[in-house]
Simulated assay, not measured.
Amino acid sequence: MTLPPFPESTVPAAGRAEVFLRYLDYFRESVLAKVSTLAEDEQRRSRLPSGWTPLELLKHLRYVELRWIEWGFQGRDVGDPWGDRRGERWYVAPEESCAALTAALRAQGAHTRTVVESSDLATRGAPGPRWNGADPAPLERVLFHLVQEYARHLGQLDIVAELAGGVVGE
């Protein structure tokens, strides 16, 4: 498994938006790399009391970006913004494959990059149901949320991969 290079703070960036995008790309690809090293039965198995599986995490992260960028910031109708859930739990149907979930997450990441590269970080999201009546957040705050979400879940996945006998570490 080859992880993408960590976005070192000493590497120049064109601006804050590029810094956010580098971290998102790093965390997204790190999650994908770790899940891909697990055997298929481990991808669909939970080793945690909370019950989530690595494939459910992939689907969840795709929907996190969908909810924050498309449904929230862009104000788009995305059908079911909570499509990563069945009831109160994350859910992956038996016919959903790692390859398909990987492709969906990468496509969502490409969409996020396009939106960020064509927007100012101070731009507020479109009003809509994502904000539950509050003023929409600016893009910079949305990106900060996405970075922390990915970082937190990558750390959780590190533990799952270790328990499953997979690759550990950064």
Rank of each mutant, 00 (worst) to 15 (best):
D120A: 13
Y91L: 08
G128I: 11
R113H: 11
E140M: 05
G109R: 03
P94R: 04
S97G: 09
D135Q: 14
E95K: 09
T112P: 04
Q74R: 15
W71I: 01
D120W: 07
Y91E: 13
V116C: 11
Y91F: 14
W82E: 08
L139I: 08
Y150I: 03
F73I: 02
Q108Y: 06
T123Q: 01
G109E: 03
D120M: 03
G87V: 12
R89E: 09
R85V: 01
R124Q: 11
E88A: 14
F73H: 08
V147C: 15
G83T: 03
E95V: 10
V115N: 01
T102K: 12
A100Y: 12
L143H: 08
A151M: 12
A103P: 03
D120Q: 08
S118F: 04
G133Y: 07
L101F: 04
G83R: 00
G133C: 09
Q108T: 09
R85G: 01
A137Y: 08
F73L: 08
G125N: 10
S119F: 03
R124C: 03
V78W: 02
P81F: 06
L139P: 10
T123D: 00
W90Y: 09
G87H: 07
T123V: 01
R130D: 10
G125R: 10
A134R: 13
R130N: 12
H153N: 15
E140D: 15
A100Q: 14
A122V: 14
R141E: 09
A151T: 10
E88L: 11
V116H: 02
G87F: 15
T102R: 15
E149H: 09
V92D: 05
Q74N: 10
R106S: 06
V115K: 00
A104V: 13
A107F: 04
P94Q: 09
R106V: 12
L121E: 01
D77K: 01
R89Q: 13
Q74F: 00
W90I: 07
E117T: 06
R106Y: 13
Q148S: 08
S118D: 10
Y91T: 02
P81Q: 11
V92W: 07
S97Y: 11
R130H: 15
G128R: 12
A122Y: 11
D135W: 05
N132M: 15
R85I: 00
W82K: 06
G128H: 13
E140K: 05
Q74T: 02
A93K: 07
L105C: 04
D84Q: 06
E117R: 12
G72P: 03
E88S: 13
E96C: 10
D120I: 06
F73Q: 02
R113W: 04
A103S: 11
W82I: 06
A100N: 06
V115H: 01
E117M: 10
L105I: 04
V78D: 08
T114S: 14
L143G: 07
R86S: 08
E88V: 00
V147F: 15
P94F: 05
R76C: 10
G133S: 08
D77W: 02
V115M: 02
D135K: 09
L143F: 14
P81I: 05
L121K: 02
W90D: 15
R130L: 11
T112Q: 05
V92Q: 06
H153V: 04
R106Q: 12
D120F: 07
E96P: 02
S118I: 07
W71N: 05
A110F: 04
H111Y: 12
V116F: 12
A151S: 11
R76F: 07
G79R: 00
E117Q: 14
W82Y: 13
P127L: 09
T114C: 04
Q74Y: 00
P129E: 00
L105V: 03
